[in-house]
Design a protein around this nucleic acid. Structure first.
Lengths: 345, 345
DNA sequence: AAGTTCTAGGAAAACGCTTACCTTGTGACC
DNA sequence: GGTCACAAGGTAAGCGTTTTCCTAGAACTT
């Protein structure tokens, strides 16, 4: 391996171009101060020749903030989060920002730990997506950490956590589920069930309540024992649906339409329905939430509620860059996408 | 909004604890030099009380390298990449490293641009996953940038690009496709077709060649006009399959088994088969590659070739941290997972 | 008891930048 | 033609760390 070479520094470029480091800095980076055309050109050329690359950390130390957005999410392998992440990266790239990312893996301790690390980095903004496994909003520790960060001039954007003292990209879960209830009623649904992730989580609670509200508006009710709680994962959906089916059978209660609070869970639920000897669509109408890309590729294609996740991500970045002094709120509309898994009955 | 507060610095902690910054640094960070028990404890307590957080950028400037792994991938919304990213984040977290990530969105120019930014950051390693839209391996510019980075002491890990002058996590595409061919022959397949992403890409070429090799080993051949090239996306899979079906019909040639070089494309392909009035499984056996989580949730469940993507990601990080002087190679085995989309015929 | 080696703390020089402040030269203005 | 304003370059003081020297005392040697 070649002897380890040192990086070219600004000082070296400056010397090579015969100017001061101040001038070199201004020429290459363009501050508020002007540099004459010819000198600027010469410096830039020299930098190019020498293969100069600015040292981002040094710039960060000198300026006090790093051109970075930090993203905290639960699990990047989940399409929900990866779609958001994709939008965030697009937004960041538009704004010439880097993205540093960490996954809490649904552990509060890790979430706190990652937040500490983020703060050490002095990013322009911290974007918290989901952390849908925290009770209510955030744990007090997390909120405290975020607040401390905000007080040192950082910007916090929260995605999807309902009310928040910080900037908020507010996904209309409640309203989406409400509209879904209407749509399912229109399709002739009469006996409803719900499989949900932990109901202590805002996201799930909103979706359930929205669904219930939607039913109520048309004079229908949702029995409490028709709601099954399970892990917020594919396998959770499988297990939850198994239980729902078993419960209804024990009670001899009819069931024709099931709302699962996320597509990932719904995919598992669909398999459970089939393993139970029933057919998705014909026997049980099944609807998910999030409208993940593959909802249209499973058979039958899955009815879901679309969240423009990519846009959510981009909006989060733009919001993070906004200069607003007040915590901003952005309501992101959701809408129902009906497919074959909920046929007219 | 509260007046912007300044961050607590090491110097302030040192003064508060009545020691020099040198001692404070050693106490909190633990260098090779020892600090006496009592003083160390006092400093740590003070730091805690003041809410001190190290400034990562300052540390990076002082030490010359940042505790960071930079990840370059094509598109985080693609489950293939998000699974790898998930593994990388897990590995990074185990090693107490941060992750900065960027998506090239399948543009060579952007890839180069991101690489520049990465280099500016002085990460411990740069991991390049896929960039499956570069001809052959990488463009010369990209290779040059990576080499320049390696020469300044950085570590480059490439995932899945076939031979490489850098550390390599080598996914056994060829071998996996070969084994898949055998398995499909065992199931009675006789008339084969392939829908692939651009064949100039290593990944696709390997998979096609492996498949062809597998067929050849049993005395079967794959007609050149039975290979359709399309975009490496879900929609590409749809279009590619449409074309394959049309071509075969024009020629009056039989077709019973199709290998699509990625699951994402295969999902699109399945829809195309149905839209064509045929049934996946009964009429056309369909197999993908990657064994993305949802292969088992679509109907019929999709035969695929499993790549332990999460492990690939973790391995990449461990490799990046390895002290080996020679570029290391790690072959990651793939294996066939047969499902209902390729029934016995 | 005098020399020698450790030990653990501190002072100050990096690290690679930005920027406040100073300096000089130019043209505008009356 | 002298005063001013301004433009454009340079000097040097930071930014928050780490780390290289120093130094003074303690703990061994003989």
């Amino acid at each position: 391996m070649a002897a380890q070479q040192r990086q070219v520094t600004l000082t070296e470029v400056a010397r090579a171009a015969g100017v001061s480091t101040a001038t070199a800095s201004r020429a290459i980076n363009g501050s508020s101060r002007r540099v004459s055309e010819d000198i600027a050109a010469r410096v830039k050329r020299t930098a190019e020749e020498l293969g100069y690359l600015p040292n981002l950390s040094a710039q960060t130390v000198a300026k006090g903030a790093s051109p970075t957005v930090a993203v905290l999410l639960s699990d990047i392998a989940d399409p929900y989060f990866s779609a958001i992440a994709s939008g965030i990266m697009a937004g960041a790239s538009e704004a010439a920002l880097m993205v540093t990312m960490a996954a809490s893996e649904r552990s509060g301790a890790r979430e706190l730990q990652m937040l500490r690390t983020f703060r050490s980095q002095h990013p322009r903004a911290i974007i918290v997506a989901g952390s849908r496994d925290e009770e209510n909003t955030h744990s007090p520790e997390v909120t405290a950490a975020l607040r401390a960060y905000a007080e040192t001039g950082g910007r916090v954007v929260v995605i999807s956590q309902g009310p928040s003292p910080f900037d908020l990209v507010d996904i209309q879960n409640h309203d989406g589920a409400r509209k879904l209830a209407h749509a399912l009623l229109d399709r002739g649904g009469a006996h409803f069930g719900v499989v949900s992730g932990r109901v202590t989580l805002h996201t799930n609670a909103d979706r359930i309540n929205g669904f219930r509200t939607g039913l109520a508006e048309r004079g229908h009710t949702l029995a409490d024992d028709a709601i099954v709680e399970a892990e917020f994962t594919r396998d959770g959906g499988y297990v939850g649906m198994q239980e729902l089916l078993a419960r209804r059978e024990d009670l001899g209660a009819p069931l024709d339409t099931v709302f699962v609070t996320s597509d990932m869970m719904a995919f598992g639920a669909a398999t459970a329905i089939r393993d139970h000897g029933l057919s998705v669509g014909a026997d049980i109408s099944l609807a998910g939430f999030d409208n993940v890309g593959l909802t249209q590729d499973v058979t039958p294609a899955m009815t879901s509620v679309e969240i423009p996740l990519h846009e959510v991500g981009r909006s989060a970045v733009r919001m993070a860059l906004g200069s607003g002094t007040e915590p901003a709120h952005l309501a992101v509309q959701t809408h129902v996408v009906l497919r074959a898994s909920t046929p007219q009955r």
